[in-house]
Each structure stands twice: as structure tokens, then as C-alpha cells.
């Protein structure tokens, strides 16, 4: 009996210590690139928030649409007003999992390939996505990077015919995050 209790206690402690392995950022970089022969458009956001639970690989992102910065002010206005409708849909988010988290040791220096799977919500539309990325751990610092493509039409974002030549149907999204340990 006593042994059983001890065992369950130990396993509980184990769970507690595992759930403590969380990492976060409040200033992650998320950029997107639209590339057509007519025009190259890019925008950068350095205020993405993210939390990674290393015990089970759960990963979440959120980003404020209004915090995307463009070179052209008018483009930024149109992005918010006409395409993303940021007053209606202020945030985009991702909720998913690093599926091969077991192969990744964030406590040990090295480069680790990661597979990420989950749901991406943009412009109020949620879609299943899967992509690959990389964790680079160096001197205790964790850097996570990934790029993936998003089809604009999948998220009910309509491009009017006058600018069809200027805006790509598929935009590239780049994520660059420096994770810090989350102390609870």
C-alpha cells in the first residue's frame, strides 16, 4: 500500500516537473512575403506571442494583425481595412503540436528538425496545417524557425481584379522565435 502511494506520488512529481518545461516569447518575429513579377510585398511583425510546452510538444502562437509593418503606409492601411479586416478579426493564431518533440532536447545544444501540425486561424477561418521547422539550441538559447506557404483564398481573403497581378495567390510566411524559459 505504502509503496503504491509512494509510486503514485513519484509519478505525480514527475508530471509536475515535466509540465514545468515551458517556453515563451512576447516578441517573436513573423513576416510574410508576396512575390509577383509586378510587385514584391513584405510585412513584418515583431510582437508575436508564443508558448511551447516541451513536455508534450503543444505549441501556440498569436499575432496582432495591426502590428504588421509595411514599407508603404497605404499598403498597411489596405491590408488592415480591405484584406484582413483587422477590426473584425484582430488576431491570427496557431494552435498545435510539435509532433516529434521527443527527439528534441531543448536543454542540449544542437540543431533539431521539427514537424509541426495544428490549426491556423487567419481572417476568422481555421485550417489544418502541417509544416517543418528547426530548433537551434546554442548556449542555452533556443531559436525556432519555420517557413510555410498559405493560399490567400483558403482564408476567404479576396483580391480584387485590379490588383490581381500585384498580390500573390500564395504568400510565404516566416516565423523566427527566440524562446525563453517560462517561470511559473
Amino acid at each position: 500500500m505504502k509503496k503504491g502511494i509512494l509510486l503514485s506520488l513519484m509519478s505525480l512529481f514527475f508530471v509536475v516537473s515535466m509540465s514545468g518545461q515551458k517556453y515563451f516569447t512576447r516578441d517573436g518575429k513573423i513576416s510574410f512575403f508576396s512575390d509577383t513579377p509586378m510587385e514584391k510585398i513584405e510585412a513584418h511583425n515583431s510582437k508575436a506571442t508564443s508558448v511551447l510546452d516541451a513536455s508534450n510538444g503543444n505549441l501556440e502562437f498569436a499575432v496582432l494583425i495591426k502590428a504588421f509593418q509595411f514599407e508603404k503606409a497605404l499598403m498597411q492601411e489596405h491590408f488592415n481595412e480591405n484584406y484582413m479586416e483587422s477590426s473584425k478579426f484582430p488576431k491570427s493564431s496557431f494552435k498545435g503540436k510539435v509532433t516529434n518533440i521527443k527527439d528534441i532536447n531543448l536543454k542540449k545544444d544542437g540543431e533539431y528538425n521539427a514537424t509541426v501540425k495544428g490549426q491556423l486561424t487567419i481572417h476568422g477561418v481555421t485550417k489544418d496545417v502541417e509544416t517543418t521547422g528547426k530548433f537551434v539550441v546554442a548556449g542555452g538559447k533556443i531559436n525556432a524557425k519555420s517557413t510555410f506557404d498559405v493560399a490567400v483564398a483558403d482564408y476567404n481573403i479576396t483580391i480584387p481584379s485590379v490588383v490581381r497581378e500585384n498580390i500573390a495567390k500564395t504568400v510565404k510566411i516566416a516565423v523566427d522565435i527566440k524562446f525563453e524559459e517560462l517561470k511559473q
Binding site: 505504502k2 502511494i5 505525480l12 509536475v16 512576447r26 506571442t49 508558448v51 501556440e60
Partner: peptide, 27 residues
């Protein structure tokens, strides 16, 4: 005493478990 200990532990653990639903709320 053991049961009590277990219960306290559970109560300690449970917020962490609940938080799994929405990791970002931790921030």
C-alpha cells in the same frame, strides 16, 4: 496524511493541467 498529501498535490498539479487547454493564457 498520505491522502491529504495526495490531494494537495493534485490541487497543485491541476492548474498546470488545465492550462494545457490554452497555453497562451499563461502569458
Amino acid at each position: 496524511l498520505c491522502t491529504l498529501l495526495l490531494l494537495t498535490l493534485f490541487s497543485l498539479v491541476s492548474p498546470a493541467i488545465r492550462a494545457q487547454d490554452d497555453l497562451l493564457s499563461l502569458l
